[in-house]
Measured scan of single mutants.
Amino acid sequence: TVKFKYKGEEKQVDISKIKKVWRVGKMISFTYDEGGGKTGRGAVSEKDAPKELLQ
């Protein structure tokens, strides 16, 4: 599970739902399947990112 803040809201998403991951400076950005055909997005700092996300 990845915990992150998006627009001031605390969120979390299961690693299995993450589609795409990329690095922006010291942040790790990602998109994930929100269900219902929607794609969500989020970002975590490199130090807070789970190891599975960095692979």
Rank of each mutant, 00 (worst) to 15 (best):
T1W: 13
T1V: 15
T1I: 15
T1N: 08
T1P: 06
T1M: 14
V2M: 08
V2T: 02
V2F: 13
V2I: 14
V2Q: 01
K3Y: 13
K3H: 10
F4S: 03
F4R: 01
F4T: 02
F4V: 03
K5V: 12
K5M: 14
K5I: 15
K5W: 15
K5C: 14
K5Q: 10
K5P: 04
K5F: 15
Y6R: 07
Y6G: 03
Y6C: 09
Y6K: 06
K7A: 08
K7I: 03
K7P: 01
K7C: 13
G8Q: 04
G8E: 04
G8K: 04
G8A: 04
G8F: 04
G8T: 04
G8I: 02
G8C: 05
G8S: 05
G8R: 03
E9T: 12
E9A: 12
E9S: 08
E9R: 12
E9L: 10
E10S: 10
E10Y: 14
E10K: 07
K11H: 09
K11P: 01
K11W: 05
Q12Y: 13
Q12G: 04
Q12T: 15
V13D: 00
V13N: 00
D14I: 06
D14V: 07
D14M: 13
D14C: 09
D14A: 13
D14F: 11
I15Q: 03
I15R: 03
I15N: 02
I15P: 02
I15Y: 06
I15C: 06
I15M: 11
S16W: 11
K17W: 08
K17Q: 13
K17G: 03
K17N: 10
K17M: 14
I18W: 01
I18D: 00
I18F: 03
I18L: 07
I18V: 08
K19Y: 14
K19D: 07
K20M: 11
K20P: 01
K20A: 11
K20C: 14
K20D: 08
V21T: 06
V21I: 12
V21E: 00
V21S: 07
V21N: 02
V21Y: 06
W22E: 03
W22H: 04
W22T: 05
W22I: 04
W22S: 03
W22P: 00
R23T: 05
R23G: 03
R23W: 12
V24I: 12
V24E: 11
V24G: 04
V24C: 15
V24H: 15
G25Q: 03
G25Y: 04
G25A: 05
G25F: 04
G25S: 03
G25W: 04
G25M: 03
K26C: 11
K26I: 11
K26E: 12
K26Q: 12
K26D: 14
K26A: 13
M27D: 04
M27H: 06
I28N: 00
I28G: 00
I28K: 00
I28D: 00
S29K: 15
S29Y: 15
S29M: 15
S29D: 03
S29I: 15
S29G: 12
F30C: 00
F30Y: 01
F30R: 00
F30P: 00
F30V: 01
F30H: 00
T31Q: 06
T31K: 04
T31N: 04
T31G: 01
Y32E: 00
Y32M: 02
D33W: 07
D33R: 04
E34H: 05
E34M: 15
E34C: 10
E34Y: 08
E34Q: 12
E34I: 13
G35I: 06
G36D: 14
G36F: 12
G36W: 08
G36S: 10
G36P: 08
G37A: 04
G37L: 04
G37F: 04
G37N: 07
G37Q: 04
G37R: 04
K38H: 09
K38Y: 08
K38C: 07
T39I: 15
T39D: 05
T39P: 05
T39S: 07
T39E: 11
T39M: 15
G40C: 07
G40E: 06
G40S: 08
G40K: 08
G40P: 02
G40R: 07
G40F: 07
G40Q: 07
G40N: 06
R41E: 08
R41Y: 15
R41Q: 08
R41W: 15
R41G: 03
R41T: 09
G42P: 00
G42W: 04
G42M: 03
G42E: 01
G42S: 03
A43M: 15
A43C: 14
A43I: 15
A43L: 14
A43T: 15
A43D: 08
A43G: 06
V44C: 05
V44M: 10
V44L: 10
V44W: 02
S45Q: 12
S45M: 14
S45R: 14
S45T: 12
S45L: 14
S45I: 08
S45W: 14
S45F: 14
E46C: 10
E46Y: 14
E46T: 12
E46N: 06
E46W: 15
E46G: 08
E46M: 13
E46A: 14
K47F: 11
K47A: 12
D48F: 12
D48P: 01
D48K: 10
D48A: 10
A49H: 01
A49S: 06
A49W: 09
A49D: 02
A49T: 03
A49N: 01
P50F: 03
P50W: 04
P50H: 04
K51R: 12
K51N: 10
K51D: 11
K51I: 15
K51T: 12
K51A: 13
E52P: 07
E52G: 08
E52M: 10
E52F: 13
E52D: 08
E52Y: 11
E52L: 11
L53R: 01
L53C: 03
L53G: 01
L53Y: 02
L54H: 05
Q55P: 06
Q55M: 15
Q55E: 14
Q55V: 13
Q55F: 12
